[in-house]
Amino acid sequence: MKHHHRYALALTGALLLISVQAGAASLSERWEALRAEQPKLPLRDAAKTLNVSEAELLVVGLGKTVTRLKEGDNVPREIMRRALDLGKVMALTRNENGVLERTGVATKLKPQEEITGLDADKEKEREARMRNIAGGYLGGEIDLRFTFKHWAYAFAVVQPGRDGVVSRSLQFFDEQGNAAHKIFVKSEAGNAVFDKLVADFRNPVQSATLKLAAAPVKPVEKPDSAIDVKEFQAAWGELGDVHQFNRLLTEFGVSREQAMRLAPPGAAQRVTPQAVRQLLSESAKQQLDIMAFLGNESVIQIFSGKVNKVMEAGGYFNVLDPEFNLHLRDSAFASGWVIKRAGVTSVEFFDKGGELVVSFFGVRERAKPQPQSWVDMTAALPKAVAMPALAAK
Rank of each mutant, 00 (worst) to 15 (best):
D85A: 15
F361V: 02
F155N: 09
N132F: 01
Q38A: 13
K122F: 05
T93V: 15
A46D: 05
N325L: 06
D174K: 09
E188A: 15
T12F: 12
A156T: 06
G61F: 02
H5I: 14
V229S: 01
V254F: 05
R131C: 00
L50Y: 05
M260L: 04
A235G: 01
P160A: 07
G13R: 09
M377N: 06
A334D: 12
H5T: 12
A313T: 07
A192W: 01
L84M: 09
K393F: 03
E323R: 14
A275D: 04
V357M: 12
E114Q: 03
G87V: 06
Q176D: 04
I133S: 02
A284K: 09
I133V: 11
G98Y: 10
F349R: 11
E127Q: 13
A332R: 11
P160Q: 06
A106W: 11
N74Y: 01
E257W: 06
P216W: 03
P39A: 05
H327N: 05
E188T: 13
K218M: 05
S19C: 14
A367K: 15
M387V: 14
Y316K: 15
K70S: 13
R68Y: 04
E188S: 14
M377H: 09
R129V: 05
A47M: 04
S19P: 00
P388D: 07
I227S: 06
L212M: 11
V276Q: 06
K196R: 15
A152C: 02
E251D: 14
P160I: 08
V344W: 01
L249V: 08
N74W: 03
S373H: 05
L239T: 08
K40F: 08
V276Y: 03
A152L: 00
A55I: 03
D121C: 00
Q370W: 03
E251C: 01
A120D: 00
E141I: 02
K222L: 12
V99D: 07
N178Q: 14
V307S: 03
S26Y: 12
L326V: 05
S225N: 10
E231C: 01
R129Y: 07
E231F: 00
A46C: 07
K368N: 10
P76R: 11
A83G: 11
E312C: 02
A235K: 14
A268K: 09
A214G: 14
P219F: 06
D163M: 12
L92I: 15
N308P: 00
H150Q: 04
Q301I: 05
K108Y: 03
D73P: 00
I79R: 08
G362K: 08
N95Q: 10
L381I: 07
Q258W: 04
Q287G: 03
R30G: 15
L288C: 06
S359V: 00
K182R: 14
G63L: 06
V299E: 08
P39F: 08
N95W: 10
E175K: 14
P388F: 11
A391T: 11
R81S: 12
Y137D: 02
A215L: 11
E113I: 00
A208T: 12
F184K: 10
V166I: 14
L239Y: 09
E365H: 08
L197E: 05
L320K: 15
P111A: 02
A55F: 05
Q274I: 04
F317T: 07
R126L: 02
V165K: 15
R6D: 01
P223L: 00
G343V: 04
G240V: 06
L118E: 00
R94D: 11
D224H: 13
L288T: 04
L249D: 05
V319Y: 06
Q287V: 05
